[in-house]
Amino acid sequence: MSNNIAVKVDDLTVAYNYKPVLWDIDLEIPEGVLMAIVGPNGAGKSTLIKSILGILKPIAGSVEIFGMSYAKQRHLVAYVPQKGSVDWDFPTTALDVVMMGTYGSLGWIKRPGQKEKKEALEALEKVGMLAFKNRQISQLSGGQQQRIFLARALVQNASIYFMDEPFQGVDATTEIAIINILKELRKAGKTVIVVHHDLQTVPEYFDWVTFLNVKKIATGPVKDIFNDDNLTKTYGINYKVSIQE
């Protein structure tokens, strides 16, 4: 892990219908960590990611990616939205969706060519979905759809990956396949930020964690701050996790 700060969030406040969803968030994410964002439902986990990525407009606050504004550093960032955020009955194939990952570097009007197709096929292979490349996306299982989304982000060849609940609704095999890919990304020096729900797997999967419940409760290495105290502060009930070391 280097000492660079990959993502720096300052005073970020987001409101929806006058109700604050995120309140004055300051956050520094070091380069090269595999970080979980945890918190109860409605804690603003997805909102935090979406605000960093400019999908939602914050009331106040700023975001820096490697010391510069997000708009300038966009090409370094890849995003895996929640699987349920799109209509999987859309008339297109798995390969086509993965190709969308190349659209950003292509820019306006230019169409993807052989080079982009090759990159997309490589990404499909990485997530073990090459055999399904011509499959209509509605005919894929939930886990397969999640892998397609992951492949689409891999094609972007970014430095920072934001993922919104990539383990939601997938079976154990897919979960293992996905976490292995995330660990590989970290090994390659990438920064991976994951909205995560399953507290039991946090110590096993991640090395960095942020506790969020409208306000930032704590952020840091899992081994230092993933404890009952922070969990109780975040979830508001007396929380005990039994962590098998």
């Binding site: 990525l53 400019g54 966009r74 939205p81 955020s85 859309f90 292509l106």
Partner: peptide
């Protein structure tokens, strides 16, 4: 001209935004 842009916007508008479109 804008086929690729139309397609990606129809499928996943949020993602399209993050790509800089």
């Amino acid at each position: 001209l804008f086929w690729k842009e139309f397609k990606i916007l129809l499928f996943d508008a949020d993602y399209t935004k993050t790509l800089g479109f």
